[in-house]
């Protein structure tokens, strides 16, 4: 299942995962090409988070194959670390490090994982903070920022590692409505710059304007994959129709 002709950078083949007895992912097949933007949606508990967390091994899959940027995810720590260096992740709850200032949050991984000298890391961090439009907050602590600002710092922190792929797990669902836009704007800009993105979100406006294709999941399976134009106007499966009718109501 793929939504384009670009060279694939994420490949998931028949991926299965169980939490104990509970079968969360039931044979996921997905290919994402370089520079593609994928929006994943589906009802709560359908396994969206679990799926994208498998891409950088925050969750371990038990069957099937995941290849990211040409590296297969196995239990080999080397491979896992190599993939994590190339994949940035943004969480629903920001997960900034509260004991470090904004700029320290940003330079931590470049300095310790990529061994970039402090000065260089700080320059990169400042340029990224400018990109997410909060350079003036560099020396504050995360707890002193609003939710929208924190999420933008989190995006900048992930970008500091110069990842090839960015994963977003409901980046706007913990935000007050008036802050959603500032975060989405940053994400749209990132998309326009050609970043490969996998985004779990229910922001259908975002899906319509940037997604190359939308993935609909239900009960651990991918039910439908289609470009937004088709997905929103002419969904094939009944489950998709039901979901869309529920989500578009409000």
């Amino acid at each position: 299942m793929t939504g384009g002709s670009a060279e694939p950078i994420i490949i998931m083949r028949d991926v299965h995962k169980w939490f104990g007895e509970f079968h969360v992912l039931k044979g996921i097949n997905l290919e994402v090409g370089k520079s593609q933007k994928v929006v994943v949606c589906g009802p709560s508990g359908s396994g969206k988070s679990t799926m994208i967390r498998c891409i950088n091994r925050l969750e371990e899959h038990q069957r099937g194959e995941i290849v990211v940027d040409g590296i297969e995810l196995t239990s080999d720590v080397k491979n896992v670390e190599a993939i994590r260096r190339e994949v940035g992740m943004v969480f629903q709850s920001f997960n900034l490090f509260p004991h470090l200032t904004v700029i320290e949050n940003l330079i931590l991984a470049p300095m310790w994982v990529r061994r970039v000298p402090r000065k260089e890391a700080e320059e990169l961090a400042m340029s990224l903070l400018e990109r997410v439009k909060i350079p003036e907050q560099a020396h504050k602590y995360p707890g002193q920022l609003s939710g929208g600002q924190q999420q933008r710092v989190a995006i900048a922190r992930a970008l500091c590692m110069k990842p090839k792929i960015m994963l977003f797990d409901e980046p706007t669902s913990a935000l007050d409505p008036e802050m959603v836009k500032e975060v989405l704007d940053v994400m749209i800009e990132l998309a326009n710059e050609g970043m490969t993105m996998v985004v779990v979100t229910h922001e259908m406006g975002f899906a319509k304007s940037v997604a190359d294709f939308v993935v609909f999941m239900d009960e651990g399976e991918i039910v439908e994959v289609a470009p937004p134009s088709v997905f929103f106007t002419n969904p094939k499966s009944d489950r998709t129709k039901l979901f869309l009718s529920q989500i578009l109501q409000h």
């Binding site: 931590l108 991984a109 310790w112």
Partner: peptide, 13 residues
Amino acid sequence: PKGQYEAAMALGL
């Protein structure tokens, strides 16, 4: 919180 571990791991630490 678990999120702190996950954020650190996701950054490649």
